[in-house]
Amino acid sequence: MMLKISNLTTHYGPSQALFGLDLHIGTGEVATLLGRNGMGKTTTINSIMGIVPASGGSITFDGVELVGRASFKTANLGLGLVPEGRQIFPNLTLEENLIATASNHLKQDNPWTMDKVLNMFPSLQDRRKFMGNLLSGGEQQMLAIGRALMTNPKLLILDEATEGLAPLVRQIIWDALALIRETGTSILVVDKNLKDLLRLADRNFIIERGKIVWSGTSDELRADREALHRYLGV
């Protein structure tokens, strides 16, 4: 397993957000993390990345323990984050957003370059000199994905991949994720568009109140009407 989370607990001060969460992603796999708002999806991602410190349990990535590890060191193991709210640097141009944190710590072959990112998202091409805060939501999301890819991750983590975006832009994002998957990059994705997600995913995890309550393949989830209704309200 590339990423293996076992019995993870996370607290915000005295209140507990994750209650012994288990999750795993294999090399080259696409996994989804599903669940209603406030169930702990972002907390799970932030715990993996070391943005929020886990209070117990274990997260290993290629055998390296991530709990207690500084955020930047975790990222440099090959985890690329596309955060909730995109968090583009507003005072940097689109180009600078891509370059500033670009790296290839794992010395991957065929690393991502600015040209590759701009080829994948052609609409960014003529926005290169625009400041981050002047980009549309869709452009920012494409940029956030490109920015994470420029760190040449083995696992791309997307928190709310298409939230608040127009259908056309969503399609661009899903197409891009399919492309990224073909390069062998693993993906952990949080989103609400179940139909698109299930088409992409190998494995799905449903989180409720800080615990994984259901996991299985996309076919299994499509067939399990009760789980869909009970945990996702569809």
């Binding site: 990345m49 070391g50 943005i51 500084a70 955020s71 930047f72 990222a75 440099n76 690329g80 984050l81 955060p83 968090q87 640097f89 507003p90 005072n91 940097l92 600078e96 957003n97 370059i99 500033a100 944190t101 790296s103 710590h105 920015r147 994470a148 760190t151």
Partner: peptide
């Protein structure tokens, strides 16, 4: 660029491996 990026969002700069 990193200095400017760090001024606006240091958490994100760190999460991207810096």
């Amino acid at each position: 660029m990193l200095i400017r990026a760090g001024a606006s969002n240091r958490t994100m700069v760190a999460a991207l491996g810096v």
